[in-house]
Design a protein around this nucleic acid. Structure first.
Lengths: 346, 346
DNA sequence: TTGTACGCGTTATCAA
DNA sequence: TTGATAACGCGTACAA
């Protein structure tokens, strides 16, 4: 059996309370060098490690953080996870990853478990407006920060990228190439991510006095399938767009796949752009134009913020926003029809 | 504050021990319907839920399972995770995912944490020969099952696919296309996965009386980078192979990327095949020939096995082996040089 | 500078 | 059919 604090106390010839206070650096404790040595020796001899369950029962703390992510298969999250994990590790917290699969029932189950296991804080990568999760966390008064996919709120904490300007950069890029018929495959509009990018898309079109049609905006889940289906819809329109900005890389790949089933070529007939710069979009043909965000740091900063909250310190800022960066690759080019139309005009 | 068992006891007018025994279906308990009702009422009125930390302290159980995976960014693991999570959920266990990043230090940290948090069992997707992890788990006498990437051992438990025959299927396919110069990018030979596939490769060449050269076998990590670098090496050979079988899809994509940097074409000049049928290999150009394994079920069955072990039941079999299936796509075709050589012969 | 005593919330053993 | 009591391993207020 593993040694308990009593065993150490016996071996060191002192009482458990001294051991506990010494090991936890109790500032009100003054202790002889001699007893320190005795304790240290006993600890290392017995290989004593405090039982964290018992500690948890006493202190209501666990030094455990949970991160809830909607889809572990989405490459977007892997760097984020690395960053969050590194921050946790460096601050002596244990990060457990939970996959909600965008499924309310599982999501519920997982929050309950996390609360039950006394997680000190929760990292939410899948916040939806009106989700039970945030309500539950608020009620349980457990700190949480939303990351990447967030919801609007004045009181919450979040780490995200500047979706509006990111979307603007993409659309400006498409406009500068000469596109006028620019469609948008939006994400679930119950998320800030999707509404922000949609807003950036709209704003940029308006600023550039380009019409947009409701038909050119299709809402879809943040998945490969979602992008695939949405693109199918766009391809059925009588007036097919010459460029499509997709809310995220995974659906962008789905869109690409849908296009490839037709005679239509990317970028010759349709320019296509995503968002996030997942490694995959650099491996497909054509390589996708997209927006890069520093996910590793998003995860790292977010976890640091969460840890501050757990330690009951106020973070300097409640909302950290990362700057997006446009990565132009092969999937965007000037529209072919542009030339055709000009010829017609003559 | 949350209601404790004492509160329920007070409200119901009985002692905590009855509540506990009733709620835990103690078979030795005989109890009046009347008191049952009282308890039920008190429980629902106070919304009582047992504190799982306190339970853990008493029972040394946590109903928590951990899964350690080497690289959360590797698409191979996402279906596996889903399966494992579903099995855990269906059996009322909580599955926490831990990302070791193929890093010994983190791996160590994570096992320690999992043990400290009293995980009931561990699911190991990143077993390496001589890893500290398995030693530690053995010593802690905590049940574990190795999945996908396993190590040889008589006593352990594992769920994997038939690597030898999977590799054979690929190589037979290449041979049937007419290839004779078939190289293999192997995974880390500290894993059964890699040695099994290497063995299948060797065996099939020998059975078909085809020479293989040591130069044609390159060991590499199970990563995109790993495959990229290994392929570079193969491309530097004086006698470049006409076909390459890569141990896994992620390195296969790396290999593809390396080839694309040259004038060499896939499959015209080099046929390329992977293993695992990650969704990504169906999105690149050319779409990769590969081996499909039922990862979801691998995860599900593996978790079921682990849960049996946790419940101290002997699983029917210690090693579950899944059948692989060959998926032929665009990245493999007959060798061009075959024809050239025949022309020479004339 | 150190020890005593209690409680965290539960389960298990025994007695009633 | 139920209750009293101890124990799990630790932290902490208070006393010494």
């Amino acid at each position: 059996m593993r040694a308990t604090i009593k065993d150490v106390a016996n071996l060191a010839g002192v009482t458990p309370s001294i051991i506990s206070r010494y090991l936890n650096n109790d500032p009100t404790l003054s202790i002889k060098e001699e007893t320190k040595d005795k304790i240290n020796k006993a600890v290392s001899e017995l290989k004593y490690k405090p039982n964290s369950i018992a500690q948890g029962l006493r202190t209501k703390k666990s030094r455990m953080l949970g991160i809830m992510i909607p889809d572990i298969g989405n490459p977007t999250f892997s760097d984020l996870l690395k960053g969050a994990q590194d921050a946790a590790y460096n601050n002596d917290f244990f990060l457990v990853i939970c996959n909600t699969e965008e499924n309310n029932e599982k999501e519920d189950y997982i929050v309950n478990m996390l609360l039950e296991k006394n997680a000190d804080g929760i990292f939410l990568a899948s916040a939806y407006i009106n989700s039970n999760v945030t309500k539950k966390l608020d009620k349980a008064k457990i700190p949480y920060v939303m990351v990447n996919r967030t919801i609007r709120s004045e009181k919450g904490y979040s780490v995200s990228c500047d979706n509006i300007s990111g979307a603007s950069m993409v659309v400006e890029h498409l406009i500068s190439l000469g596109h006028k018929k620019i469609a948008h495959i939006a994400g679930s509009l119950f998320t800030d991510t999707a509404t922000g990018r949609l807003q950036g898309y709209r704003k940029t079109l308006i600023d550039n006095r380009i019409d947009y049609f409701p038909d050119y905006i299709v809402e879809a889940p943040f998945s490969f399938e979602g992008g695939y289906i949405a693109m199918k819809k766009l391809l059925e329109l009588k007036d097919i767009p010459t460029a499509v900005f997709v809310v995220s890389d995974l659906p962008a790949l789905g869109a690409l796949s849908a296009i490839k089933e037709t005679n239509i070529l990317v970028p010759d007939d349709i320019s296509l752009a995503g968002f996030n710069n997942n490694w995959v979009v650099n491996q497909v043909t054509p390589r996708l134009t997209t927006i890069e965000t520093d996910f590793y740091n998003m995860g790292y900063k977010g976890a640091e913020m969460l840890i501050q909250l757990v330690n009951e310190n106020q973070p300097e800022q409640a909302h950290i926003v990362f700057k997006p960066k446009l990565i132009v690759r092969e999937s965007t080019s000037p529209p072919k029809q542009e030339k055709a139309m000009k010829t017609d005009d003559i």
